[in-house]
Design a protein around this nucleic acid. Structure first.
Lengths: 103, 103
DNA sequence: CATACATTTGACAAATAATGTCAAGAATGA
DNA sequence: TCATTCTTGACATTATTTGTCAAATGTATG
């Protein structure tokens, strides 16, 4: 594999440390408790969408990309234990297209 | 398009009517309130996984297929308003594979 | 129309899950 | 040791999901 797959928490932690910021500094900027931010970075807790956007802004990460990471990671965890995970994603794609067309 | 995309509610309702069953009859078999079953069939409410399995059994629908419909529909609704929906699904697939390998 | 029966609707309650708070514990380094 | 940062876990709060029920609506038939 030519790229390193990072979880969204990894991305945040790496960027924060690159910037030499402390947990509590970033936590203050995005108005979230340090304990929660710590858990988000280590994947122990899910972030909320708003938090991801605020973190992206504070760390100058690409918002759109982070949103994709956020949504896709949530979905991945929903189906990681399903042996039909790949089929589920294919069908989901069809359903998105179909429901959009017919809404 | 060569196939008719049905929501999971449509599938249930069609099969139930094919079998000539009343809402309350199926509801009794799967131990769910008729009002809820009515809403599930019309897509007004999400079913729970257990309910889908029980309904599939009661109606002799393929359980595996219904589970895929159930999971994929949930995912589709999660991202239907995202303009990056397709990217999200692609990234989700990578994440599933990666997280499985590294768990 | 009047009756009987099936389904739908909506308000509300109950249960469950997500999120936040806080203080104590562990780790790190000077 | 001391100061600082990060982590952990118990608990409270809030939000979301799910269930219950009765009234309203729809539908067919005498």
């Amino acid at each position: 594999m030519i790229f390193q797959m990072d979880s969204i928490g990894d991305i945040i932690r790496k960027k924060r440390e690159e910037k030499g910021m402390l947990l509590r500094q970033l936590a203050a900027m995005v108005e979230v408790d340090s304990a929660i931010l710590s858990k988000i970075e280590r994947g122990e807790r899910k972030a909320r969408r708003e938090q991801i956007i605020n973190i992206a802004k504070a760390l100058e990460l690409d918002e759109k990309r982070m949103l994709i990471e956020f949504l896709s990671e949530n979905i991945a965890y929903e189906i990681i234990d399903e042996d039909s995970a790949t089929d589920v994603l294919r069908v989901a794609e069809s359903k998105v297209k179909y429901f959009r067309k017919n809404k």
